[in-house]
Computed example of a mutant assay.
Amino acid sequence: MADHGLKFEIESKTVAEFRSLDKSGELILQPEYQRKAVWPDRAKVSLMETILLGYPIPEIYLAYETTPEGEQTASVVDGQQRLTSLLEFLNNRFPLDGLEDEKLREKFEGKLFKELPDDVRQEFFQYRFPIRRLSNLADEFVRAVFARVNRVNMVLTEQELRNALLPGPFNDFLKDCVAHPISELSGVFSGERRKRGGDLEFYAEVFGTCIFGLSNKKTELNERYDKISADFEDYQDRSAEFLELLTVLSSTIKWVGRTRWSNIVDMFTLLHVSWGLREELANTNPEQTMQLRDLLDLFQRAVSARKRSGENGEANGLLVSLATMVNMTAEEVDKVIEQYTSGIRNSSDLGSRRVRSQQLTLLLSRKLKS
């Protein structure tokens, strides 16, 4: 058994003690490796109901760190959702809506914490949480405990585990991508995707594809992520190029409402294709940039029209306009749109990704080289 001088002490803390720790600033609810609070209200209410009933709750893992000056902090390794919900309830952030226990429902349904009777609040503050205390662990071991506990409980996504186990420059670069204006302009990430690290995973996969080429997501992502994370200095220049590419695309695309570029599949293809043409894109003059903007807008509208109406309808006029821009026949452009649209099915499949990239590259390269 590995001996890292780890101490795992078992103790307990009352609700009142957790509130005091939070007020004093000694409780760190969201260390860097933790995910954001994602519990829905019904889960929060269920936890409060459990406390009111006096039922047991799974133990909370706290990593204590004491400085030579005697200052102490407690970081939440496991139990962040529970403690965040608890403190929100104590601060009257949500009412007890949807209680399951009939007696509690009759007495407290719809009430905030401050509206509960004095004796109930007093008893609530005395409820004890079981605590697993981790004392003065090195950061790498705290992260390992966090990842292992959550892997066993199956509560983290793959990206949340990567965030915990692989901090550092690559993770910081991915955060820069997520914070880039293009992420907001495109509307490509839902709130739930952002909460669970899906935005970080998206950029990790796109960047890995730009560096190593197209692949099947499921089979290659983890291996590529580990490699780039371990040797990020080797990819520093290309990470700067990638961020610059995001800036170029931010000013090139027509961001009006939801477009095809608001979809993960299409945005992935756009970024991968644009990376291959990044030098040409960076050297366009204002007139060429406007033409590219129109081209990409016509393209995404034609794809959407094809998906809605098949062979005929709105797509025909868009095809003619596209054909004129790239000096192709409408029939040739129609084939490009047809093949690209077919590649949207089985979107993460290597063959589908290859088809989409080939067709978009064909149109963009013709325009850039004309």
Rank of each mutant, 00 (worst) to 15 (best):
5 G>I: 04
6 L>G: 01
10 I>V: 15
11 E>A: 15
13 K>H: 13
14 T>I: 09
18 F>T: 03
19 R>I: 06
21 L>R: 06
21 L>G: 01
31 P>Y: 00
31 P>K: 01
37 A>F: 12
40 P>T: 09
41 D>P: 00
45 V>K: 04
46 S>N: 07
47 L>E: 06
47 L>T: 05
48 M>Q: 03
50 T>E: 10
54 G>N: 11
58 P>K: 00
59 E>Q: 08
62 L>V: 08
64 Y>M: 15
65 E>I: 10
66 T>Y: 10
67 T>S: 15
71 E>I: 12
75 S>G: 10
82 R>W: 04
85 S>K: 00
87 L>S: 03
88 E>I: 02
90 L>E: 05
91 N>C: 06
92 N>C: 13
93 R>P: 02
94 F>C: 08
95 P>S: 14
99 L>F: 04
100 E>F: 01
101 D>H: 10
105 R>Y: 06
107 K>A: 13
107 K>N: 08
110 G>D: 10
112 L>S: 02
113 F>G: 00
115 E>D: 11
118 D>C: 03
121 R>Q: 14
121 R>T: 10
123 E>N: 13
132 R>I: 05
141 F>C: 01
143 R>D: 07
156 L>M: 11
159 Q>C: 05
160 E>D: 08
160 E>L: 08
161 L>I: 12
163 N>W: 00
165 L>D: 14
169 P>Q: 08
171 N>I: 01
172 D>N: 13
174 L>I: 14
180 H>V: 08
180 H>Q: 09
181 P>E: 11
188 V>M: 06
190 S>D: 07
192 E>V: 04
193 R>H: 02
195 K>M: 07
196 R>Y: 10
198 G>P: 00
198 G>Y: 02
206 V>T: 04
207 F>H: 02
209 T>K: 05
211 I>E: 10
212 F>Q: 14
218 K>C: 06
218 K>E: 13
222 N>F: 02
226 D>R: 15
231 D>K: 13
231 D>V: 05
235 Y>H: 04
242 F>M: 09
245 L>I: 05
250 S>G: 13
251 S>L: 04
252 T>P: 01
257 G>Y: 09
258 R>E: 12
260 R>T: 03
260 R>H: 09
261 W>S: 00
264 I>E: 11
267 M>A: 02
269 T>V: 07
270 L>N: 01
277 L>P: 00
278 R>D: 02
278 R>T: 02
280 E>M: 10
280 E>G: 06
286 P>M: 06
290 M>T: 11
291 Q>V: 07
296 L>E: 11
298 L>R: 11
298 L>C: 11
299 F>A: 13
301 R>W: 15
303 V>C: 15
305 A>M: 14
309 S>C: 09
312 N>V: 14
314 E>I: 12
316 N>D: 13
319 L>F: 10
320 V>D: 06
320 V>W: 01
320 V>Q: 07
326 V>E: 11
328 M>N: 08
332 E>I: 01
332 E>R: 08
334 D>G: 15
338 E>W: 06
339 Q>C: 04
349 D>I: 03
350 L>C: 05
351 G>Y: 09
352 S>P: 08
359 Q>H: 05
360 L>K: 03
361 T>A: 08
361 T>Y: 09
365 S>A: 14
368 L>C: 09
